[in-house]
Write a protein that binds this DNA or RNA. Structure first.
Lengths: 329, 329
DNA sequence: CCCGTCTCGGAAATCGTTTTCCATCATTAT
DNA sequence: ATAATGATGGAAAACGATTTCCGAGACGGG
């Protein structure tokens, strides 16, 4: 396996020069650069990452922290989009990625986690699905030991960035759309987990629009699951004209309950997952492009690693209407 | 950040001795071993992986090759099970894992792939969803440059292992079960992609049982998708008593077609995905534990890396009956 | 009592880069 | 013509482990 020295010899230069070519140093003439590149090609040389990391003390390695949903419903779809989006993007940028699932961290102490990340020579974290009660991870972010990008959690600081859809606007937009097509005097809003960061903006939005339009609003505490949503809807569905949910899974639950109650109510979801096409009847939802969000998160991680300060990135959303089994026909 | 030398100094021994303790060398007395371990703890020392890799020329690094389904239907479930199963297991064994999606390899030549894997210092591959026309990857396996474990593909050799369910027996079992509860004179079998390794055993099984029981069998070429299955069933569903499919998605397609035709036929699937609970009505299927399969694949990869020869591992399967929306109630 | 054998621990080379500093040479200004 | 400047390329010292080889004691047998 060819090393930098072999390349140097073949090109008739010093090893340090080869390294400079490899790392795009400014003071290498075009001529020698070409010689070196030729030698690299001829020898099919690939720099040894371990040696480079050891010497430069930089790994360019980031970890993907994925909060897999507890019940492995088919919502795996969202995580899978996150995974493929970020891994593909990271490779395009020649970054090294480690995938870590929240479940692997469950019984670990803060120190365990830090040691683990250090042992893996990880410099940055991209975190999907952080919630307010993940205190150990919050501590990790605040420690500033690692550059962090959080999807769906506001954590902007010198070393941390946020990437997400404008939660307020998204919820506002879909509420407006629903009310436009379905004149209603009252709304039942099924909220997601209380400790979820995304709920803040969404609750504010739904409150605002209800106030603006003089509509009765009932907010019920859910947990993003279809089970809880079904239960609530069974109890309260009759009394409200319109049902809006904090996730598509909840919308499925609500619709099931409506079928059981044998009544009709317009239902809105949130996320825009494919599963909707299989299980839903008709529903309006907020479509988020999870793959694109993940790519943006990787780009932001790179920026942080380069030394730029953290910032917030707002990703676009779309209001869409899904028909039953659209996906098939 | 403490290095091995700091530990050595603190413990009053040489760096080489610390290294020996770290790597469980035999000739270190219990006494010095203890001294070193104490020093390691006190200094919160974590060995630098890059240095170790450089020096030992071993990384213990494996790559997960995931063949994501082209249409990102909610079948992400299977890939997600594979991913979580194998990554968690690999961490338990302190192996380093890289995740690579087939789509990232599409336009790469064989040489590109080898270079890529070499640059990542990868020593072993765990491949999910390999099919007969992935020739570049087959070449990689045959090259013996990397230890390979394939899930659902028979590739056993000195450097390659296979992990899968007994395809023949699984298909045979479910056919038997179906015929037991649904006396039938004819079966329509919707096969999966022709170049899929799993189909060999399954086709043989379905043929055998049809012959044994003197039943008319019609095998139609599908591609694991619900779309194709729906089309075939629309055309032929009427003529057969029983419909058996090579995947749950196909079973969904078949059931949709039956609804369109307004006739009833018992339908069998294969895989046991959760999505079935949302989309299916009633169906019998072969449940595979994908997470457990992935874990077994990692174990096998470790074994290969340790120098053991390749072998075939048969994982258990179960025949299960799924009711519509079981998952919710 | 001596020598061979065994155990244990240390010295030093090595892995393949990066990076700092220095030397050389050409160029330009004086 | 000479000094100052700038552009290139090389020498060598890290980086932090592993691993080989060797020496010093301890020990037992003859």
């Amino acid at each position: 396996m060819a090393s930098i020295k072999d390349v140097a010899k073949k090109a008739g230069v010093a090893a340090s020069t080869v390294s400079k070519v490899l790392n795009n140093y400014p003071n290498v003439s075009e001529e020698t650069k070409k010689k070196v590149e030729d030698a690299i090609r001829e020898l099919n040389f690939i720099p040894n990452a371990a040696a480079a990391a050891l010497s430069s003390k930089q790994t360019g390695r980031i970890a993907l922290l994925i909060n897999e949903k507890e019940q492995s419903q088919a919502i795996d779809e969202i995580d899978m989009q996150y995974l493929t989006g970020s891994i593909v993007r990271a490779r395009e940028k020649h970054m090294d990625v480690q995938t870590i699932f929240f479940s692997m961290l469950k019984e670990k102490t803060y120190e365990d986690m830090v040691n683990y990340l250090r042992a893996q020579s990880i410099e940055g974290l991209v975190i999907f699905g952080l919630s307010k009660n993940d205190t150990e991870i919050m501590r990790l972010i605040n420690s500033k030991m690692f550059k962090c990008v959080c999807v769906d959690a506001p954590v902007v600081s010198e070393t941390a960035s946020t990437v997400w859809v404008d939660q307020y606007k998204a919820q506002y937009d879909i509420a407006k759309e629903m009310l436009l097509h379905n004149p209603a005097k009252s709304i039942l809003y099924l909220a997601g987990k209380k400790n979820s960061f995304v709920m803040e903006g969404r609750l504010k939005a739904i409150n605002d629009i209800a106030k603006e339009q003089g509509i009765t609003l009932k907010v019920e505490q859910g947990d993003f699951s279809e089970k809880k949503a079904r239960k609530i809807t069974l109890k309260l569905g009759r009394k409200y004209d319109l049902i809006m949910c904090a996730s598509d899974m909840m919308a499925i639950g609500a619709m099931l309950a409506l079928t059981d109650l044998d009544i009709f109510r317009p239902v809105a979801g949130f996320d825009g997952i494919t599963l909707m096409g299989y299980a839903g009847k008709k529903m309006t939802t907020v479509k988020q492009d999870f793959k694109e969000i993940a790519r943006a998160a990787i780009d932001e991680a790179e920026s942080l690693l380069l030394g730029n300060p953290g910032k917030e990135t707002i990703m676009p959303h779309k209001i869409v209407r899904i028909e039953y089994l659209d996906v098939i026909h």
